[in-house]
């Protein structure tokens, strides 16, 4: 019995201190960040050439296929709604009373002048099914020990073909991400912080996005309330809910 316990502890120690595989790391990250549904209240603080603006919104997402968000502030944006179904995105603007479909290259444009693109906003999918990962080393970020991960896109259709991320060894949450284009050009840098426990998972409540192709101070994405895996009414994800 003693031998069995000793062997078990030795194996556990080896796993704990050894370098995990890329796939294992992605599974651990997805276990924290990926959810069947997400309901959140958040705000974006966009740093621009003429000062910063705060945009507040509520969002409902279901996997990486369906998403709905409604902007509540400032006055100019209030009532603007966005609906994503599969790879299609619609925007409703109350001032024009129009439902506009955003497709193709437009999906890579900035959302309300922020450093996030429509794709960034709508993409809530798990990493495992989109990237092949390999652990390339370790580092220390924000005083936390991290694994250094290289994620190569499985499909050519991914907006970011390469991601270099640093993942907290203990909480399995990325603390920094660098997103690259196919050409190898650095497109975005994200710093994730304020990691809190939400329904038994670790979740970063603050993210600072920096579009490397833009001038500006970046965009802070702050999650104020977050509910995971809670049922979302079916009618939310319909065009009727836009108007």
């Amino acid at each position: 019995m003693k031998i069995l316990i000793f062997t078990g502890l030795a194996l556990l120690t080896a796993v704990s201190y050894g370098q995990p595989s890329g796939k294992e790391m992605l599974n651990l990250i997805d276990r924290n960040l990926s959810a069947k549904t997400r309901i959140m209240t958040a705000k974006m603080i966009v740093g621009g050439a003429r000062g910063s603006r705060t945009i507040e919104f509520n969002a409902w997402t279901e996997g990486d296929k369906r998403s709905f968000s409604e902007y509540t502030s400032p006055a100019r944006e209030k009532g603007t709604k966005m609906l994503k179904l599969e790879d299609k995105l619609w925007i409703f603007s109350p001032s024009t009373d129009r439902i506009i479909q955003i497709t193709g290259q437009m999906l890579r444009q900035s959302v309300m002048g922020s450093d996030l693109s429509y794709e960034d906003m709508m993409n809530n999918g798990d990493l495992t099914s989109h990237y092949n990962a390999s652990v390339t080393g370790s580092d220390t970020i924000q005083g936390r020990k991290c694994w250094l991960l290289r994620l190569d896109a499985i499909s050519d259709n991914e907006a970011y073909q390469l991601r270099i991320i640093k993942v907290d060894k203990e909480k399995n949450i990325p603390l920094t991400e660098e997103l690259y284009a196919k050409s190898g050009k650095l497109l975005k840098r994200i710093i994730l912080s304020d990691v809190k426990q939400v329904q038994g998972r670790w979740y970063p409540m603050k993210m600072v996005f920096r579009d490397m192709l833009k001038t500006g101070d970046g965009t802070q994405f702050v999650i104020e309330t977050l509910k995971l895996d809670e049922p979302v009414p079916e009618n939310i994800f319909s065009k009727a809910s836009l108007k």
Binding site: T80, T96, R98, I100, V111, M112, G113
Partner: peptide, 16 residues
């Protein structure tokens, strides 16, 4: 027709 773009302050501009 509807114009979609950004305002001088980076807000979303949608105008008929």
């Amino acid at each position: 027709v509807t114009f979609i773009g950004s305002t001088m302050y980076g807000e979303m501009a949608i105008f008929n």
